[in-house]
Amino acid sequence: MVGRPRARRSHRKEQLALVHGEVAGERTLTRLHSECLTGDVFASRHCECGEQLAAALREIVAEGRGILVHLQGHEGRGIGLLAKLRAMRLQGEGLDTVEANLALGLPVDARDYRVAADVLHDLGVNSVRLLSNNPLKREALVAHGIGVAAQVPLLTEPCPENIRCFRAKRERLAHDLPHLDGLLGRP
């Protein structure tokens, strides 16, 4: 992907936007991607993050314009890498991702998308077509002044290692994952 990387300091973290083509204006294809060291770098099959990152970049390039905002400080839905690894250990013992965070005394989701909206405002983006299955991302962008013209599904195929993660996202976190209906049954 050819683009202009842009860094922004916020909350003591540098944020990165990979920009492809002319993005200012309306209906810009956009992915807000939470950092995931285990999935993005080490190709963990515990989650679908690495696959979603690659798929989002392919869709942006195919579109001819778009933005991927890589959000630092979002590891483990905002709990940090070490806490995420502790939660993963609890998941290995049978808890789902929500239960594991709560068992550790942590929030289910501690992410803040204000910085993502700030980055989009800086790039002159007024509205997006959001590559996401997570309704909270849509709500957060709208709350911070970025219109969401459409939410574009970013569906990946589950595997035995991440099926529990998919189930928790759909049943506990309200992610829109219609491709799982036959596999998981309807909620």
Score class of each variant (00 low, 15 high):
Ala103Asn: 09
Asp176Lys: 07
Arg86Thr: 09
Asn126Gln: 15
Arg170Thr: 14
His70Pro: 01
Thr38Lys: 01
Leu120Asn: 08
Gly21Glu: 04
Val115Asn: 00
Ala168Phe: 13
Pro107Lys: 11
Leu90Ala: 12
Glu14Asn: 13
Ala140Ser: 15
Leu184Pro: 08
Leu173Gln: 07
Gly21Thr: 03
Leu68Phe: 10
Arg31His: 14
Arg6Val: 10
Ile163Gly: 14
Leu102Gly: 04
Asp96Tyr: 00
Gly145Tyr: 10
Glu22Cys: 10
Gly64Thr: 11
Leu130Pro: 01
Pro187Arg: 15
Lys13Ser: 10
Arg6Tyr: 03
Leu141His: 02
Leu102Cys: 06
Glu22Ser: 08
Asp96Arg: 01
Ser34Tyr: 02
Leu82Gln: 06
Glu22Gln: 05
Ser127Gln: 15
Val41Lys: 10
Pro153Met: 08
Ala116Leu: 02
Ala100Ile: 07
Ile67Asn: 09
His175Leu: 13
Ser34Lys: 00
Gly92Thr: 04
Arg172Ile: 00
Ala7Glu: 11
Gly94His: 08
Pro5Thr: 03
Leu16Trp: 01
Ala140Thr: 06
Phe42Gly: 06
Glu51Gly: 01
Arg31Cys: 11
Glu59Tyr: 12
Glu22His: 05
Val2Asp: 15
Glu63Gly: 03
Gln72Phe: 04
Gln15Glu: 07
Ser127Val: 14
Ala87His: 03
Cys49Asp: 01
Leu68Lys: 05
Val148Lys: 05
Asn101Ala: 03
Pro5Ser: 00
Leu123Cys: 06
Asp176Cys: 07
Arg172Asp: 00
Val2Cys: 11
Leu155Lys: 13
Ala83Met: 05
Arg4Thr: 11
Glu99Pro: 01
Gly185Leu: 15
Gly80Glu: 14
Val41Asn: 06
Ser44Lys: 02
Arg89Thr: 11
Arg164His: 12
Gly64His: 10
Leu104Lys: 12
Ala103Gln: 09
Lys137Gln: 03
Leu71Phe: 05
Arg114Ile: 10
Gly124Tyr: 11
Val108Tyr: 00
Ala116Met: 03
Glu48Tyr: 00
Arg89Ser: 09
Leu82Trp: 04
Gly147Tyr: 04
Leu106Ile: 06
Ala143Leu: 13
Ala168Lys: 12
Ala7Tyr: 03
Gly94Ile: 06
His46Ser: 14
Glu99Val: 00
Ala103Ile: 11
Ile60His: 04
Glu75Ala: 12
Leu184Thr: 00
Leu177Trp: 08
Ser127Phe: 05
Tyr113Arg: 07
Gln72Ala: 11
Leu130Glu: 07
Glu59Thr: 12
Lys169Glu: 10
Leu136Thr: 13
Glu157Gln: 10
Arg170Phe: 13
Leu16Asp: 07
Pro187Ala: 13
Ala140Arg: 12
Gly182Asp: 01
Leu177Asp: 02
Ser132Thr: 15
Arg114Ala: 14
Asn126Lys: 15
Thr156Phe: 02
Gly3His: 13
Leu82Met: 15
